[in-house]
Design a protein around this nucleic acid. Structure first.
Lengths: 216, 216
DNA sequence: GTCTATAGAGTGATAGAC
DNA sequence: GTCTATCACTCTATAGAC
Protein backbone atom coordinates (compact mmCIF):
# COMPACT_ATOMS: atom_id res chain seq x y z
CA UNK A 1 0.00 0.00 0.00
CA UNK A 2 2.04 2.91 -1.27
CA UNK A 3 1.43 6.31 0.25
CA UNK A 4 0.02 9.03 -1.92
CA UNK A 5 2.47 11.77 -2.75
CA UNK A 6 -0.11 14.41 -1.99
CA UNK A 7 -1.72 14.97 1.40
CA UNK A 8 -5.18 13.46 1.48
CA UNK A 9 -8.07 15.82 0.93
CA UNK A 10 -10.53 15.95 3.72
CA UNK A 11 -13.88 17.18 2.49
CA UNK A 12 -15.48 14.85 4.98
CA UNK A 13 -16.25 17.35 7.66
CA UNK A 14 -18.22 19.42 5.19
CA UNK A 15 -19.89 16.32 3.86
CA UNK A 16 -21.06 15.32 7.32
CA UNK A 17 -22.47 18.80 7.76
CA UNK A 18 -24.30 18.66 4.47
CA UNK A 19 -25.66 15.23 5.19
CA UNK A 20 -27.00 16.53 8.48
CA UNK A 21 -28.63 19.47 6.73
CA UNK A 22 -30.30 17.17 4.24
CA UNK A 23 -31.48 14.88 7.00
CA UNK A 24 -33.09 17.78 8.87
CA UNK A 25 -34.72 18.96 5.66
CA UNK A 26 -36.13 15.49 5.04
CA UNK A 27 -37.42 15.36 8.60
CA UNK A 28 -39.08 18.74 8.19
CA UNK A 29 -40.90 17.55 5.08
CA UNK A 30 -42.02 14.38 6.83
CA UNK A 31 -43.35 16.38 9.78
CA UNK A 32 -45.29 18.74 7.54
CA UNK A 33 -46.57 16.51 4.78
CA UNK A 34 -45.95 12.94 5.93
CA UNK A 35 -43.41 10.59 4.46
CA UNK A 36 -45.67 9.51 1.66
CA UNK A 37 -45.69 12.99 0.19
CA UNK A 38 -41.95 13.44 0.45
CA UNK A 39 -40.27 13.95 -2.91
CA UNK A 40 -36.59 14.23 -3.60
CA UNK A 41 -37.23 17.55 -5.29
CA UNK A 42 -38.75 19.16 -2.22
CA UNK A 43 -36.06 17.99 0.15
CA UNK A 44 -33.38 19.34 -2.16
CA UNK A 45 -35.15 22.66 -2.33
CA UNK A 46 -35.40 22.90 1.45
CA UNK A 47 -31.78 21.96 1.86
CA UNK A 48 -30.89 24.69 -0.62
CA UNK A 49 -29.11 22.43 -3.07
CA UNK A 50 -29.90 20.77 -6.36
CA UNK A 51 -31.61 17.45 -6.54
CA UNK A 52 -28.59 15.80 -8.14
CA UNK A 53 -26.30 16.98 -5.40
CA UNK A 54 -28.60 15.64 -2.79
CA UNK A 55 -28.71 12.31 -4.57
CA UNK A 56 -24.94 12.35 -4.46
CA UNK A 57 -25.13 12.29 -0.67
CA UNK A 58 -28.20 10.10 -0.38
CA UNK A 59 -28.43 7.91 -3.46
CA UNK A 60 -32.15 7.24 -3.19
CA UNK A 61 -35.37 8.47 -1.73
CA UNK A 62 -35.37 5.59 0.73
CA UNK A 63 -31.99 6.66 2.04
CA UNK A 64 -33.51 10.05 2.60
CA UNK A 65 -36.32 8.64 4.67
CA UNK A 66 -33.87 6.75 6.81
CA UNK A 67 -31.93 9.99 7.28
CA UNK A 68 -35.13 11.68 8.44
CA UNK A 69 -35.70 8.93 10.96
CA UNK A 70 -32.14 9.20 12.19
CA UNK A 71 -32.56 12.94 12.69
CA UNK A 72 -35.75 12.29 14.61
CA UNK A 73 -33.99 9.81 16.86
CA UNK A 74 -31.52 12.55 17.80
CA UNK A 75 -34.44 14.77 18.73
CA UNK A 76 -35.91 12.05 20.91
CA UNK A 77 -32.60 11.60 22.70
CA UNK A 78 -32.53 15.34 23.31
CA UNK A 79 -36.09 15.28 24.53
CA UNK A 80 -35.41 12.56 27.08
CA UNK A 81 -32.26 14.31 28.23
CA UNK A 82 -34.17 17.57 28.70
CA UNK A 83 -36.57 16.01 31.17
CA UNK A 84 -35.82 16.10 34.84
CA UNK A 85 -35.74 12.44 35.72
CA UNK A 86 -34.98 10.50 38.85
CA UNK A 87 -31.60 8.83 39.24
CA UNK A 88 -32.89 5.56 37.90
CA UNK A 89 -35.69 6.26 35.44
CA UNK A 90 -37.79 3.24 34.60
CA UNK A 91 -38.19 1.94 31.06
CA UNK A 92 -41.82 3.02 31.31
CA UNK A 93 -40.84 6.64 31.95
CA UNK A 94 -38.46 6.77 29.01
CA UNK A 95 -40.91 5.18 26.61
CA UNK A 96 -43.71 7.34 27.98
CA UNK A 97 -41.86 10.53 27.19
CA UNK A 98 -41.16 9.49 23.62
CA UNK A 99 -44.65 8.10 23.11
CA UNK A 100 -46.24 11.30 24.35
CA UNK A 101 -44.17 13.15 21.80
CA UNK A 102 -45.36 10.75 19.10
CA UNK A 103 -48.97 11.44 20.07
CA UNK A 104 -48.41 15.11 19.45
CA UNK A 105 -47.02 14.49 16.00
CA UNK A 106 -47.82 11.12 14.52
CA UNK A 107 -46.10 11.70 11.18
CA UNK A 108 -42.74 10.48 12.41
CA UNK A 109 -44.31 7.47 14.09
CA UNK A 110 -45.97 6.68 10.81
CA UNK A 111 -42.64 6.87 9.04
CA UNK A 112 -41.09 4.63 11.67
CA UNK A 113 -43.73 1.96 11.21
CA UNK A 114 -43.57 2.09 7.44
CA UNK A 115 -39.80 1.77 7.35
CA UNK A 116 -39.79 -0.99 9.95
CA UNK A 117 -41.81 -2.98 7.43
CA UNK A 118 -39.49 -2.16 4.55
CA UNK A 119 -36.56 -3.11 6.76
CA UNK A 120 -37.45 -6.76 6.36
CA UNK A 121 -35.81 -6.55 2.96
CA UNK A 122 -32.01 -6.82 3.44
CA UNK A 123 -31.44 -4.70 0.34
CA UNK A 124 -33.39 -1.80 1.75
CA UNK A 125 -31.45 1.03 3.40
CA UNK A 126 -33.73 0.78 6.41
CA UNK A 127 -32.57 -2.77 7.05
CA UNK A 128 -29.28 -1.79 8.60
CA UNK A 129 -30.85 1.14 10.41
CA UNK A 130 -33.40 -1.07 12.13
CA UNK A 131 -30.89 -3.75 12.98
CA UNK A 132 -28.90 -1.08 14.78
CA UNK A 133 -31.94 0.60 16.24
CA UNK A 134 -33.40 -2.57 17.71
CA UNK A 135 -30.06 -3.70 19.03
CA UNK A 136 -29.27 -0.35 20.61
CA UNK A 137 -32.70 0.16 22.09
CA UNK A 138 -32.78 -3.36 23.49
CA UNK A 139 -29.38 -3.12 25.12
CA UNK A 140 -30.37 0.24 26.56
CA UNK A 141 -33.57 -1.19 28.02
CA UNK A 142 -31.83 -4.32 29.25
CA UNK A 143 -29.28 -2.21 31.10
CA UNK A 144 -32.05 -0.30 32.82
CA UNK A 145 -33.83 -3.49 33.78
CA UNK A 146 -30.62 -4.90 35.28
CA UNK A 147 -30.07 -1.70 37.22
CA UNK A 148 -33.58 -1.95 38.61
CA UNK A 149 -33.04 -5.56 39.49
CA UNK A 150 -29.96 -4.52 41.43
CA UNK A 151 -32.01 -1.82 43.11
CA UNK A 152 -34.73 -4.32 43.98
CA UNK A 153 -37.50 -2.68 41.95
CA UNK A 154 -37.61 -5.42 39.34
CA UNK A 155 -37.90 -9.14 39.80
CA UNK A 156 -34.37 -10.61 39.98
CA UNK A 157 -35.28 -13.76 38.07
CA UNK A 158 -36.25 -11.93 34.90
CA UNK A 159 -34.06 -12.36 31.84
CA UNK A 160 -33.26 -8.74 31.10
CA UNK A 161 -32.43 -9.35 27.44
CA UNK A 162 -35.62 -11.27 26.79
CA UNK A 163 -37.67 -8.61 28.55
CA UNK A 164 -35.98 -5.88 26.53
CA UNK A 165 -37.05 -7.57 23.30
CA UNK A 166 -40.61 -7.81 24.59
CA UNK A 167 -40.62 -4.18 25.62
CA UNK A 168 -39.55 -3.06 22.16
CA UNK A 169 -42.16 -5.30 20.59
CA UNK A 170 -45.04 -4.02 22.69
CA UNK A 171 -43.90 -0.45 22.20
CA UNK A 172 -43.83 -0.61 18.41
CA UNK A 173 -46.86 -2.87 18.28
CA UNK A 174 -49.03 -0.56 20.34
CA UNK A 175 -47.86 2.37 18.28
CA UNK A 176 -48.85 0.61 15.07
CA UNK A 177 -52.32 -0.08 16.49
CA UNK A 178 -52.64 3.49 17.67
CA UNK A 179 -51.83 4.82 14.21
CA UNK A 180 -54.81 2.91 12.84
CA UNK A 181 -57.16 3.61 15.74
CA UNK A 182 -56.01 6.54 17.89
CA UNK A 183 -58.79 5.86 20.37
CA UNK A 184 -56.62 5.10 23.36
CA UNK A 185 -53.81 6.73 25.30
CA UNK A 186 -50.74 5.30 23.65
CA UNK A 187 -48.25 6.53 26.23
CA UNK A 188 -50.32 5.36 29.17
CA UNK A 189 -50.81 1.90 27.69
CA UNK A 190 -47.11 1.56 27.01
CA UNK A 191 -46.28 2.58 30.55
CA UNK A 192 -48.72 0.07 32.03
CA UNK A 193 -47.46 -2.74 29.83
CA UNK A 194 -43.85 -1.90 30.62
CA UNK A 195 -44.52 -2.01 34.33
CA UNK A 196 -46.26 -5.33 33.99
CA UNK A 197 -43.46 -6.86 31.97
CA UNK A 198 -40.65 -5.59 34.12
CA UNK A 199 -42.14 -7.56 36.91
CA UNK A 200 -43.41 -4.85 39.18
CA UNK A 201 -46.36 -7.07 40.02
CA UNK A 202 -44.13 -10.09 40.40
CA UNK A 203 -42.07 -8.13 42.88
CA UNK A 204 -45.23 -7.18 44.73
CA UNK A 205 -46.33 -10.80 44.79
CA UNK A 206 -42.95 -11.81 46.13
CA UNK A 207 -43.22 -9.15 48.82
CA UNK A 208 -46.62 -10.52 49.76
CA UNK A 209 -45.07 -13.93 50.15
CA UNK A 210 -42.24 -12.53 52.21
CA UNK A 211 -44.73 -10.71 54.39
CA UNK A 212 -46.72 -13.91 54.85
CA UNK A 213 -43.55 -15.73 55.80
CA UNK A 214 -42.61 -13.01 58.26
CA UNK A 215 -45.95 -13.33 59.96
CA UNK A 216 -45.32 -17.02 60.56
CA UNK B 1 -90.18 1.07 -3.67
CA UNK B 2 -91.79 -0.27 -6.79
CA UNK B 3 -90.97 -3.78 -7.81
CA UNK B 4 -89.15 -4.33 -11.05
CA UNK B 5 -91.23 -5.96 -13.73
CA UNK B 6 -88.40 -8.34 -14.48
CA UNK B 7 -86.88 -10.71 -11.98
CA UNK B 8 -83.71 -9.26 -10.57
CA UNK B 9 -80.45 -10.48 -12.03
CA UNK B 10 -78.22 -12.06 -9.54
CA UNK B 11 -74.66 -12.09 -10.74
CA UNK B 12 -73.56 -11.64 -7.17
CA UNK B 13 -72.89 -15.24 -6.38
CA UNK B 14 -70.60 -15.42 -9.35
CA UNK B 15 -69.00 -12.17 -8.33
CA UNK B 16 -68.21 -13.47 -4.89
CA UNK B 17 -66.70 -16.54 -6.47
CA UNK B 18 -64.57 -14.51 -8.79
CA UNK B 19 -63.43 -12.24 -6.02
CA UNK B 20 -62.37 -15.29 -4.06
CA UNK B 21 -60.47 -16.65 -7.05
CA UNK B 22 -58.65 -13.36 -7.48
CA UNK B 23 -57.83 -13.22 -3.79
CA UNK B 24 -56.30 -16.71 -3.88
CA UNK B 25 -54.33 -15.78 -6.99
CA UNK B 26 -52.99 -12.67 -5.27
CA UNK B 27 -52.03 -14.73 -2.22
CA UNK B 28 -50.23 -17.24 -4.43
CA UNK B 29 -48.17 -14.48 -6.01
CA UNK B 30 -47.33 -13.02 -2.61
CA UNK B 31 -46.21 -16.42 -1.31
CA UNK B 32 -43.99 -17.03 -4.33
CA UNK B 33 -42.52 -13.64 -5.06
CA UNK B 34 -43.36 -11.44 -2.09
CA UNK B 35 -45.84 -8.59 -2.09
CA UNK B 36 -43.36 -6.12 -3.48
CA UNK B 37 -43.08 -8.05 -6.72
CA UNK B 38 -46.82 -8.45 -7.15
CA UNK B 39 -48.15 -6.83 -10.30
CA UNK B 40 -51.74 -6.53 -11.36
CA UNK B 41 -50.82 -8.22 -14.63
CA UNK B 42 -49.57 -11.39 -13.01
CA UNK B 43 -52.51 -11.74 -10.66
CA UNK B 44 -54.91 -11.38 -13.57
CA UNK B 45 -53.03 -13.99 -15.53
CA UNK B 46 -53.14 -16.45 -12.63
CA UNK B 47 -56.82 -15.83 -12.12
CA UNK B 48 -57.37 -16.50 -15.81
CA UNK B 49 -58.98 -13.16 -16.57
CA UNK B 50 -57.95 -9.89 -18.12
CA UNK B 51 -56.31 -7.18 -16.12
CA UNK B 52 -59.20 -4.79 -16.68
CA UNK B 53 -61.72 -7.31 -15.43
CA UNK B 54 -59.70 -7.87 -12.33
CA UNK B 55 -59.53 -4.16 -11.72
CA UNK B 56 -63.27 -4.10 -12.01
CA UNK B 57 -63.46 -6.36 -8.97
CA UNK B 58 -60.51 -4.87 -7.11
CA UNK B 59 -60.05 -1.29 -8.22
CA UNK B 60 -56.39 -1.03 -7.26
CA UNK B 61 -53.30 -2.98 -6.52
CA UNK B 62 -53.65 -2.15 -2.83
CA UNK B 63 -57.10 -3.68 -2.76
CA UNK B 64 -55.52 -6.78 -4.22
CA UNK B 65 -52.97 -6.96 -1.44
CA UNK B 66 -55.69 -6.66 1.16
CA UNK B 67 -57.55 -9.47 -0.60
CA UNK B 68 -54.42 -11.61 -0.38
CA UNK B 69 -54.18 -10.93 3.34
CA UNK B 70 -57.84 -11.79 3.80
CA UNK B 71 -57.34 -15.09 2.01
CA UNK B 72 -54.37 -15.81 4.22
CA UNK B 73 -56.42 -15.12 7.33
CA UNK B 74 -58.87 -17.79 6.20
CA UNK B 75 -55.99 -20.22 5.90
CA UNK B 76 -54.81 -19.39 9.39
CA UNK B 77 -58.29 -20.02 10.76
CA UNK B 78 -58.29 -23.37 8.98
CA UNK B 79 -54.86 -24.15 10.35
CA UNK B 80 -55.87 -23.47 13.93
CA UNK B 81 -59.05 -25.49 13.49
CA UNK B 82 -57.10 -28.42 12.09
CA UNK B 83 -54.97 -28.71 15.22
CA UNK B 84 -56.07 -30.97 18.01
CA UNK B 85 -56.34 -28.58 20.90
CA UNK B 86 -57.44 -28.89 24.47
CA UNK B 87 -60.88 -27.71 25.49
CA UNK B 88 -59.62 -24.33 26.50
CA UNK B 89 -56.57 -23.49 24.40
CA UNK B 90 -54.49 -20.64 25.72
CA UNK B 91 -53.82 -17.49 23.74
CA UNK B 92 -50.20 -18.61 23.65
CA UNK B 93 -51.11 -21.84 21.87
CA UNK B 94 -53.20 -20.10 19.24
CA UNK B 95 -50.58 -17.48 18.52
CA UNK B 96 -47.86 -20.11 18.58
CA UNK B 97 -49.53 -22.13 15.85
CA UNK B 98 -49.92 -19.15 13.59
CA UNK B 99 -46.45 -17.83 14.34
CA UNK B 100 -44.86 -21.18 13.55
CA UNK B 101 -46.63 -21.07 10.22
CA UNK B 102 -45.27 -17.58 9.63
CA UNK B 103 -41.76 -18.81 10.32
CA UNK B 104 -42.13 -21.38 7.58
CA UNK B 105 -43.21 -18.76 5.08
CA UNK B 106 -42.39 -15.21 6.00
CA UNK B 107 -43.78 -13.60 2.85
CA UNK B 108 -47.27 -13.25 4.23
CA UNK B 109 -45.96 -11.91 7.52
CA UNK B 110 -44.03 -9.35 5.55
CA UNK B 111 -47.18 -8.33 3.72
CA UNK B 112 -49.03 -8.07 7.00
CA UNK B 113 -46.45 -5.75 8.49
CA UNK B 114 -46.25 -3.59 5.39
CA UNK B 115 -50.01 -3.17 5.16
CA UNK B 116 -50.34 -2.51 8.88
CA UNK B 117 -48.15 0.52 8.25
CA UNK B 118 -50.18 1.66 5.26
CA UNK B 119 -53.33 1.18 7.31
CA UNK B 120 -52.51 4.32 9.26
CA UNK B 121 -53.84 6.23 6.28
CA UNK B 122 -57.67 6.28 6.46
CA UNK B 123 -57.87 6.46 2.65
CA UNK B 124 -55.96 3.24 2.23
CA UNK B 125 -57.96 0.03 1.67
CA UNK B 126 -55.96 -1.63 4.43
CA UNK B 127 -57.31 0.86 6.95
CA UNK B 128 -60.71 -0.76 7.29
CA UNK B 129 -59.22 -4.23 7.13
CA UNK B 130 -56.92 -3.56 10.04
CA UNK B 131 -59.57 -1.85 12.10
CA UNK B 132 -61.65 -5.01 11.74
CA UNK B 133 -58.70 -7.31 12.18
CA UNK B 134 -57.48 -5.70 15.38
CA UNK B 135 -60.96 -5.50 16.80
CA UNK B 136 -61.79 -9.10 15.97
CA UNK B 137 -58.49 -10.50 17.15
CA UNK B 138 -58.65 -8.53 20.40
CA UNK B 139 -62.19 -9.60 21.23
CA UNK B 140 -61.22 -13.17 20.47
CA UNK B 141 -58.22 -13.02 22.76
CA UNK B 142 -60.16 -11.20 25.47
CA UNK B 143 -62.80 -13.91 25.44
CA UNK B 144 -60.15 -16.57 25.91
CA UNK B 145 -58.56 -14.66 28.75
CA UNK B 146 -61.92 -14.33 30.47
CA UNK B 147 -62.56 -18.03 30.05
CA UNK B 148 -59.21 -18.77 31.62
CA UNK B 149 -59.96 -16.39 34.45
CA UNK B 150 -63.16 -18.32 35.06
CA UNK B 151 -61.20 -21.55 34.98
CA UNK B 152 -58.65 -20.17 37.42
CA UNK B 153 -55.66 -20.32 35.07
CA UNK B 154 -55.38 -16.59 34.66
CA UNK B 155 -55.25 -13.92 37.30
CA UNK B 156 -58.82 -12.73 38.01
CA UNK B 157 -57.82 -9.10 38.46
CA UNK B 158 -56.51 -8.67 34.94
CA UNK B 159 -58.42 -6.42 32.57
CA UNK B 160 -59.06 -8.83 29.73
CA UNK B 161 -59.56 -6.11 27.12
CA UNK B 162 -56.38 -4.29 28.06
CA UNK B 163 -54.43 -7.54 28.03
CA UNK B 164 -55.83 -8.44 24.63
CA UNK B 165 -54.52 -5.20 23.19
CA UNK B 166 -51.11 -5.88 24.69
CA UNK B 167 -51.08 -9.40 23.32
CA UNK B 168 -51.80 -8.18 19.80
CA UNK B 169 -49.11 -5.54 20.15
CA UNK B 170 -46.41 -7.91 21.33
CA UNK B 171 -47.38 -10.42 18.67
CA UNK B 172 -47.10 -8.03 15.75
CA UNK B 173 -44.14 -6.23 17.29
CA UNK B 174 -42.10 -9.39 17.75
CA UNK B 175 -42.99 -10.46 14.25
CA UNK B 176 -41.75 -7.15 12.85
CA UNK B 177 -38.47 -7.56 14.73
CA UNK B 178 -38.14 -11.12 13.55
CA UNK B 179 -38.58 -10.10 9.93
CA UNK B 180 -35.56 -7.84 10.27
CA UNK B 181 -33.47 -10.21 12.36
CA UNK B 182 -34.71 -13.79 12.21
CA UNK B 183 -32.19 -14.83 14.83
CA UNK B 184 -34.66 -15.96 17.47
CA UNK B 185 -37.58 -18.34 17.77
CA UNK B 186 -40.54 -16.10 17.03
CA UNK B 187 -43.21 -18.56 18.10
CA UNK B 188 -41.44 -19.45 21.34
CA UNK B 189 -40.93 -15.82 22.28
CA UNK B 190 -44.56 -15.03 21.58
CA UNK B 191 -45.69 -17.94 23.72
CA UNK B 192 -43.48 -16.91 26.62
CA UNK B 193 -44.61 -13.30 26.44
CA UNK B 194 -48.26 -14.34 26.24
CA UNK B 195 -47.94 -16.50 29.31
CA UNK B 196 -46.27 -13.69 31.18
CA UNK B 197 -48.94 -11.18 30.26
CA UNK B 198 -51.90 -13.40 30.93
CA UNK B 199 -50.71 -13.58 34.47
CA UNK B 200 -49.54 -17.16 34.67
CA UNK B 201 -46.73 -16.05 36.94
CA UNK B 202 -49.07 -13.90 38.96
CA UNK B 203 -51.28 -16.93 39.44
CA UNK B 204 -48.28 -18.96 40.48
CA UNK B 205 -47.24 -16.28 42.91
CA UNK B 206 -50.73 -16.22 44.33
CA UNK B 207 -50.64 -19.98 44.71
CA UNK B 208 -47.36 -19.69 46.56
CA UNK B 209 -49.00 -17.26 48.91
CA UNK B 210 -51.96 -19.55 49.40
CA UNK B 211 -49.61 -22.44 50.07
CA UNK B 212 -47.74 -20.38 52.60
CA UNK B 213 -51.02 -19.48 54.28
CA UNK B 214 -52.08 -23.10 54.33
CA UNK B 215 -48.91 -24.08 56.08
CA UNK B 216 -49.67 -21.58 58.83
C1' DG C 1 -69.19 -8.26 -16.67
C1' DT C 2 -65.61 -8.72 -19.73
C1' DC C 3 -62.13 -7.33 -22.74
C1' DT C 4 -58.40 -4.65 -25.92
C1' DA C 5 -55.63 -1.04 -26.06
C1' DT C 6 -53.75 3.04 -24.57
C1' DA C 7 -51.62 6.57 -22.03
C1' DG C 8 -50.94 9.25 -18.10
C1' DA C 9 -47.98 10.49 -14.70
C1' DG C 10 -44.97 11.35 -11.61
C1' DT C 11 -40.56 10.13 -10.12
C1' DG C 12 -36.47 8.32 -9.27
C1' DA C 13 -32.17 8.24 -11.04
C1' DT C 14 -28.11 9.29 -14.53
C1' DA C 15 -24.76 11.54 -17.91
C1' DG C 16 -21.62 14.76 -18.33
C1' DA C 17 -19.99 19.64 -17.93
C1' DC C 18 -17.96 22.89 -14.56
C1' DG D 1 -18.78 18.29 -5.01
C1' DT D 2 -22.04 20.66 -7.51
C1' DC D 3 -25.18 21.58 -11.08
C1' DT D 4 -28.37 21.46 -15.62
C1' DA D 5 -30.97 18.77 -18.26
C1' DT D 6 -33.03 14.71 -19.48
C1' DC D 7 -34.10 10.06 -19.48
C1' DA D 8 -36.32 5.95 -18.59
C1' DC D 9 -39.99 3.78 -17.18
C1' DT D 10 -42.63 0.64 -14.76
C1' DC D 11 -46.92 0.24 -13.57
C1' DT D 12 -51.26 1.58 -12.57
C1' DA D 13 -55.62 2.86 -13.97
C1' DT D 14 -59.15 4.38 -17.51
C1' DA D 15 -61.90 4.83 -21.80
C1' DG D 16 -64.88 2.70 -24.53
C1' DA D 17 -66.43 -1.35 -27.44
C1' DC D 18 -68.73 -5.86 -27.03
Amino acid sequence: MAQDSKPARRPYAKTAERRATIGRAALAVVRERGHRALTTAEVAERAGISEATMLYHFPSRDHLLVAALTASTEDQTQLVASQALSDLPGPDQLAGIIARDAMRDDKVAHLFTALSADAANPEHPAHEYFQDHYRTARSHLARIVRARQAAGTAHPDLDADAIARQLMAIWTGLQAQWLVEPDFDLAAEIEVAFRQLTGQSAVEAKRAIDDAMTRL
